[in-house]
Amino acid sequence: MRQQIDALGIKGSVFVIRKGKILLNYADSNTTDTSYLINSAQKSLTAAMVMRLVQDGKLSLQDRLSKFYPEIPGAKKIKIEHLLAMRAGLHLKPGAKLGRKHFVSDQDNIACDVKKTVFDPKLLGKWHYSSLNYVYLCGIITKVTNKSYEQLFHETYVEPLKLKHTEFLWSKPHRILKSGLVPGFFYRNGHYDIIKHEAALRDAHNELGAGSVVMSNQDLAKAIRYVLTGNLLTKRSRKLLYDAQPPSYYNGGLYHNDKQKTKLANGAGEGYYTFMRTTNDAKTMIIIQSNRTRKNEFDKLKKSVNQVMRQLLESQ
């Protein structure tokens, strides 16, 4: 298994569990406790926070977006369940980016995003990937709880699971240092260039619940296991959250493979990669993270990691 993973050429940290036992836990270039920006893999944790509010009766999957943000185009037609499944028909205007160049607050970012949001009624109910869906979900849970997303994340995951290598990218320098975060690099002109922290920080604020947290492999594994099998959600809540339809079989921040009974998440940006593959019971899992990235290699690596997961399942 290690030879198969090393053959991928991913420089970073590797964590593999098979049938509930650690099979591999090693690092190439970094350490096993190194933390990385998990980017879109964070969506799965945000989705579970939303579902917990639904479970507690503080929110409904049928609630309309207009209940919280009536100014968003198409808000009267869009439901919470649409946002979770990336089927809300929302996207940004051509050329627009999430948030603003100079961060003011989460609320200001959302207000800024609203002005750049486009609703396409033809896409309502059809899968269309956009982090915008999860940014609005963050705003909604903040309105419902009167707590910041960061506070809710800490209360949901960091504190109960005692995560030691998890921080928001904008945490104080000594906390970031303690988390084990390494800089992100991108390959260009024959060598790896470091991604400037200021640029990464701005993007992290703009991708609030979809790309702002750094985690080590073992912390991410703990959180995913907690979401899939812990007492955060009931079986019924998980069934509702992960009810996914073709073509993408995506819901709740995760892609689903019903045939293999597995779930997966990927993250890429700011010089970092995160690949997470797990069985539905979280007993067999692969997490590979890296802080060295190249243009046009992400999709290839996703498929290669899928193949490694298939081989791991076949070996059980």
Rank of each mutant, 00 (worst) to 15 (best):
P246Y: 01
T145S: 08
T46Q: 03
A85T: 12
G211S: 04
S248N: 11
Q260T: 05
I141R: 05
R87M: 09
K300V: 09
K147Q: 04
E81Y: 06
A7W: 00
P247T: 11
S40G: 06
L240H: 05
N133M: 06
K222E: 04
Y226N: 04
H256T: 14
H191S: 12
F68E: 02
K261Q: 14
S66P: 10
L53W: 00
V182F: 11
M285W: 00
L169Q: 06
S130C: 13
S130D: 14
P70I: 03
N206D: 03
R310K: 14
L181F: 10
L241C: 04
Y129I: 07
Q3A: 15
R277K: 06
D203A: 15
R202K: 14
R294Y: 14
F153M: 02
G184K: 09
A75F: 06
L163Q: 11
G230E: 13
A85I: 09
C138S: 06
G190P: 06
G20R: 08
Q289W: 00
I140S: 02
Y255A: 11
Y157R: 08
K263C: 15
C138N: 03
Y250V: 10
K295D: 15
I286D: 04
A221H: 09
L45K: 03
R175F: 08
Y272P: 03
V104F: 12
A47S: 09
D120Y: 07
K21C: 02
K11C: 10
F185L: 06
S60L: 05
G180V: 10
I17K: 15
W127P: 11
S171L: 07
Y273E: 08
D108A: 14
A111H: 10
S44K: 01
G209F: 09
K172R: 13
A47W: 00
P160L: 06
L241A: 00
N291L: 04
Q245H: 10
H165W: 06
Y136M: 07
E198S: 15
R18V: 05
S66C: 09
W170E: 05
P70F: 04
L84I: 05
L208P: 00
K77D: 12
V308K: 02
I78P: 08
L163Y: 01
A200Q: 07
G139Q: 07
I17Y: 15
G95E: 12
L161N: 10
V227R: 02
N266I: 07
T46H: 03
I72Q: 05
K101H: 12
